[in-house]
Amino acid sequence: MLEARRTVQALAALIRVSVATAMQYRSNLLFGLATALLVDAMRVAPLLLVYGQREQVAGWELPHALLVTAFFFLLFGVQAAVLEPNLGEAVQAVRSGALDLMLMKPVDAQLLVSLRKVDASSLFPVVSALLVGGVALGMTELPGPVDVLLAVALFGSGVVSLYCLWLLAICVSFWFVRVDNLRFLLWSATDAGRWPIDVFRGPVRWILTAVVPVALITSFPAQALRGAWDVELLGTSAAVSAAFLLGSRWAWRRSLAAYASASS
């Protein structure tokens, strides 16, 4: 219990420092916000193009597809602000030997290594997510409280699996220091999350649910918000994130053991 409290305190302190750093560069922040909003607007455009031609695509109407996009922007923000910077930090730490120092701290090493930094200036997609989500909800009936709660839970569960995926990348970096390209690969793979999962068929659909679990984060919560959830949906999400949690924790321990015996 004491260790858990210490871990939380340590993480909070690290995050405070990150935010303070970002606030040092206010003009950069404004510029970043402007570019992010413009880029995100261009990301929505193809959807409008498609729905300019069709009422429905793979069973999804425009407002619901927009909800998927909103969750996609949230995913984007989490990934850019939390997951990616920490992979970079971890690689640095392995290279410079600072990892040894981190492992000496009396807090959970996995959390300390994988969540030590928040790049607050990359959180702008959250603004886009709120804008797009607001517009989408304005176009349909408002979801009921149960739907909202489920959507939040599903999104959380999806984020956990995505975190585990990036943690696996950190584990890989213990062996291969050059993981820049792995970063790009994760980014481009998660890009598929911007469309409703039903447009994908066969193995791709399965991959996007269980291997690169973007559907869990974008389509599943959107499904809940439109009231179209069922037990299978909830069960899949829970099962996939549980598997990711266990698997990544195992991989982390294995890598630490390998790291400890490899370095001198």
Binding site: P46, V50, Q53, R54, V57, A58, R178, D180, N181, L182, F184, L185, W187, S188, D191, A192, W195, D198, V199, F200, R201, V204
Partner: peptide, 24 residues
């Protein structure tokens, strides 16, 4: 070469777009 292969896999965006347009 390993990086190169990953790079190329990275630019498979057209395939993601293809899925959407195929459904359309």
């Amino acid at each position: 070469r390993a990086e190169m292969v990953i790079w190329i896999l990275t630019s498979t965006m057209p395939l993601i777009m293809l899925a959407l347009w195929n459904a359309v």
